[in-house]
Computed example of a mutant assay.
Amino acid sequence: MHIPVKRSRDNVFAGVISGMCEHFGWNTTIGRVLYVLLTLMPWFPGIIVYLVLWLLMESPE
């Protein structure tokens, strides 16, 4: 099972956040900062969400 969003080649770890930002037309830096802020919140399982997205997203070509 894959989602129709591709991971980005412009990546820090696996390209998940930058791929999402490219797909929706957002600024990559702001997307990464928002992800880090959400991950630091106790009610957001950020690392688990990142790993699941990494597994479901298509790899860059």
Results as ranks from 00 to 15, higher is better:
residue 1 M to G: 09
residue 1 M to A: 14
residue 1 M to W: 13
residue 2 H to N: 13
residue 2 H to F: 14
residue 2 H to S: 12
residue 3 I to P: 07
residue 4 P to R: 06
residue 5 V to N: 10
residue 5 V to A: 10
residue 6 K to E: 15
residue 6 K to F: 12
residue 7 R to S: 00
residue 8 S to L: 07
residue 10 D to V: 05
residue 11 N to G: 00
residue 12 V to G: 05
residue 13 F to N: 13
residue 14 A to W: 01
residue 14 A to L: 02
residue 15 G to P: 12
residue 15 G to Q: 14
residue 15 G to H: 08
residue 15 G to R: 03
residue 16 V to E: 03
residue 17 I to W: 01
residue 17 I to G: 00
residue 18 S to P: 06
residue 18 S to C: 08
residue 18 S to I: 00
residue 19 G to H: 01
residue 22 E to R: 15
residue 22 E to Y: 09
residue 22 E to W: 10
residue 23 H to E: 10
residue 23 H to P: 07
residue 23 H to I: 13
residue 23 H to Y: 15
residue 23 H to V: 15
residue 23 H to G: 03
residue 24 F to S: 08
residue 24 F to R: 14
residue 24 F to A: 12
residue 26 W to M: 05
residue 26 W to T: 01
residue 28 T to C: 11
residue 28 T to V: 15
residue 29 T to D: 05
residue 29 T to Q: 02
residue 30 I to T: 05
residue 30 I to N: 03
residue 31 G to N: 07
residue 31 G to P: 03
residue 32 R to K: 07
residue 32 R to F: 05
residue 33 V to K: 15
residue 33 V to R: 05
residue 34 L to G: 02
residue 34 L to A: 08
residue 35 Y to W: 13
residue 35 Y to S: 01
residue 37 L to P: 01
residue 37 L to W: 09
residue 38 L to G: 04
residue 38 L to I: 00
residue 39 T to K: 12
residue 40 L to W: 09
residue 40 L to D: 08
residue 40 L to Y: 06
residue 41 M to W: 08
residue 42 P to T: 02
residue 42 P to V: 01
residue 42 P to I: 00
residue 43 W to S: 14
residue 43 W to L: 15
residue 44 F to N: 01
residue 44 F to L: 02
residue 45 P to E: 03
residue 46 G to S: 04
residue 46 G to R: 02
residue 48 I to R: 05
residue 48 I to A: 08
residue 48 I to H: 11
residue 49 V to D: 04
residue 49 V to Y: 03
residue 50 Y to N: 07
residue 50 Y to A: 02
residue 50 Y to Q: 05
residue 50 Y to T: 11
residue 51 L to I: 06
residue 51 L to K: 08
residue 51 L to E: 07
residue 51 L to R: 14
residue 52 V to E: 06
residue 52 V to N: 06
residue 54 W to R: 15
residue 54 W to H: 13
residue 55 L to H: 09
residue 55 L to F: 13
residue 55 L to G: 07
residue 56 L to A: 14
residue 56 L to T: 15
residue 57 M to K: 09
residue 57 M to F: 10
residue 57 M to G: 11
residue 58 E to L: 12
residue 58 E to S: 12
residue 58 E to M: 07
residue 59 S to P: 03
residue 60 P to S: 11
residue 60 P to T: 13
residue 60 P to R: 07
residue 61 E to A: 10
